[in-house]
């Protein structure tokens, strides 16, 4: 998934080969992760696609089914992965993920702790940010979920950057071996305030913490706990408004056609009073916000170790 893997990084010379993870794109809201396997087929509403037809094509290709339907085959990125991964828990989305990484000041080489792992949506982006020399240690108290996350990171080729541990961080805190070593810590826990004393132990001086909570009561309580060891405590909400773009045709109406500088089709009609009226159609590209949007994901509380 990352350019670190020089063999797999996208390039004009790179084509899809057996065993590659591809994102099958039908529409912007309909995508699927598929591991290419010679002899396998993908069946969807557009027909049957043979994987063997894909091999040797470049990423970004349009491929056809037996019925002439088509899909695009894309190289995976953390953003695409977030849209296709299997939701074992509520996941973090792109606006929150981007903001968290920027605000935690995560750069290559950082050591980052995370809990819980959940579906690994954020973890994937954390790994991208710390690569090639940093590492993400992520913990979930759910054994099976941790296992599935591990499988996913194997599949996306990130397992050398991520270690998944099974641990109840609220109950036990982070492992002592990370004391004073973490550049940043991310918490997505029901009672984050229980883990905050451990976070203070793990962080380097001036290290950063982010806690994600859907409810304001959780934020309230976390912020009270943060007062003792942390400074620069700030809570944000970040959302995305998306736009739809359309070319619309609109009629115009001129009393006098002579000054018309529109080069589009004109119709000249004679009005009852004898004067000419020009009615034209002009088309223009317009944008408006989409009617529905995600209204809330969670509050992001950031703090720095004093």
């Amino acid at each position: 998934m990352l350019a670190n893997d020089l063999e797999k990084r996208i390039s004009f010379k790179r084509s899809i080969s057996n065993g590659d993870l591809v994102i099958v794109y039908e529409k912007h809201d309909s995508m699927k992760a598929v591991t290419v396997s010679e002899g396998s087929v993908l069946q969807n509403r557009f027909g049957v696609f043979k994987h063997s037809d894909w091999i040797g094509n470049p990423f970004g290709s349009k491929v056809f089914s037996n019925k002439g339907g088509f899909v695009y085959l894309l190289a995976p990125t953390p953003e695409l992965w977030t849209l296709v991964l299997s939701h074992r828990t509520q996941i973090l989305y792109i606006a929150d993920i981007s903001f968290v990484i920027m605000y935690l000041e995560i750069v290559p080489g950082c050591l980052v702790l995370e809990s819980g792992t959940g579906s690994g949506s954020l973890t994937t982006s954390l790994a991208r940010a710390v690569a090639p020399t940093g590492h993400v240690y992520t913990f979930d108290f759910h054994d099976q979920r941790a296992g599935s996350a591990r499988d996913d990171f194997e599949r996306t080729g990130l397992s050398s950057l991520i270690s998944v541990g099974v641990r109840d961080i609220q109950g036990e805190g982070f492992p002592d071996e990370f004391t004073g070593l973490a550049d940043s810590v991310f918490l997505d826990l029901p009672q984050p305030w229980l883990a905050i004393p451990s976070v203070a132990k793990m962080l380097k001086q001036d290290g950063t913490l982010c806690s994600f909570s859907p409810c304001i009561e959780q934020v309230q309580r976390s912020c009270e706990t943060l007062q003792t060891c942390f400074t620069d405590i700030r809570t944000f909400e970040v959302l995305l408004r998306t736009y739809e773009v359309r070319e619309e045709k609109m009629g115009t109406f001129h009393g006098d056609g002579n000054d018309s500088n529109v080069s589009l089709p004109c119709k000249r009609r004679q009005c009852s009073d004898g004067s000419y009226v020009v009615s034209t159609t002009i088309s223009s590209v317009m944008a408006r916000p989409c009617g529905e949007a995600r209204g809330h994901t969670g509050y992001l509380t950031f703090a720095r170790l004093k």
Binding site: Y25, H28, Y72, L74, A95, F99, V219, Q220, C223, I233, R234, T235, F236, E237, V238, L239, L240, R241, T242, Y243, V245, E247, V285, M286, A287, P289, Y299, T301
Partner: peptide
Amino acid sequence: LATCMHNLQLEKMAIGLQISEPWLREYQV
């Protein structure tokens, strides 16, 4: 951006096109 997106669609140069505007609100807690 709207014009650019429209043209990219017409020319079939890109997919997954989206215009978005982030919204950021800070809280006093």
